[in-house]
């Protein structure tokens, strides 16, 4: 068998009925989930800063204890996905992840792994969302891989509303979000 990775293709505009039939997969933290509640509003924007209204965003994160697929926190689901709405927005209900092991045995700053799909994206883009003002950010090795002047594109900002964080994800344009080659 030919063992080259099969080519990626765009998600197309008509995936909702199969992948995001409702908003249930945006609720990652049930009432009994441990940790600090985070309502994370992600806005998907194109080269002109206009909303991308037919994108799909997937999140993958550790529990509040810093464990992926944490058996001790069954009310928390580390995977979430939502379609963007008419304003390019989607709202995930989750918790702030704990720190997980990174490179050379060092701990990573709390972060959420993001995949973005949309018509016009021939393959997903991969980003990371960090939490602005977290003291662990300064020593995070992955944040440190990005050029200093672009690191702010990886930070969610806390709003005046308790527990609510905003993140603008720019696919391209002057504020292009840092994307990773994984």
């Amino acid at each position: 068998m030919d063992l080259h990775h099969t080519a990626n293709q765009p998600i197309g505009p008509f995936y909702h009925f199969a992948l995001t039939p409702d908003n249930d997969a945006g609720i990652m933290a049930g009432p009994d989930a441990k940790g600090e509640r985070v309502d994370l509003a992600i806005r998907l924007l194109d080269a002109d800063g206009k909303p991308v209204t037919n994108g799909m965003i997937e999140l993958w994160q550790a529990s509040a204890a810093g464990i992926y697929n944490d058996p001790a926190d069954p009310a928390f689901h580390g995977f979430g996905r939502l379609a963007t709405d008419r304003e390019g927005l989607c709202l995930f209900h989750t918790v702030k992840p704990g720190q997980v092991a990174g490179l050379n045995g060092k701990l990573q700053a709390p972060h959420i792994n993001v995949s973005v799909y949309a018509p016009g994206l021939t393959k997903r883009v991969v980003a990371r969302i960090y939490f602005a003002d977290d003291p662990a950010n300064d020593s995070d090795q992955v944040l440190g891989l990005a050029p200093e002047d672009r690191r702010q594109t990886m930070l969610a900002r806390q709003t005046l509303e308790a527990g609510r964080w905003n993140f603008d994800l720019h696919l391209c344009g002057p504020c292009e979000t840092v994307f990773f080659d994984i």
């Binding site: 550790a62 696919l171 391209c172 292009e176 994307f179």
Partner: peptide
Amino acid sequence: TAKRAPRQPLIFLPHTLSERTGP
């Protein structure tokens, strides 16, 4: 693709637990 394709170089990410795990 014109208004949606990223233009900046992607940052090469050495794999950590975040990349090695999945749902």
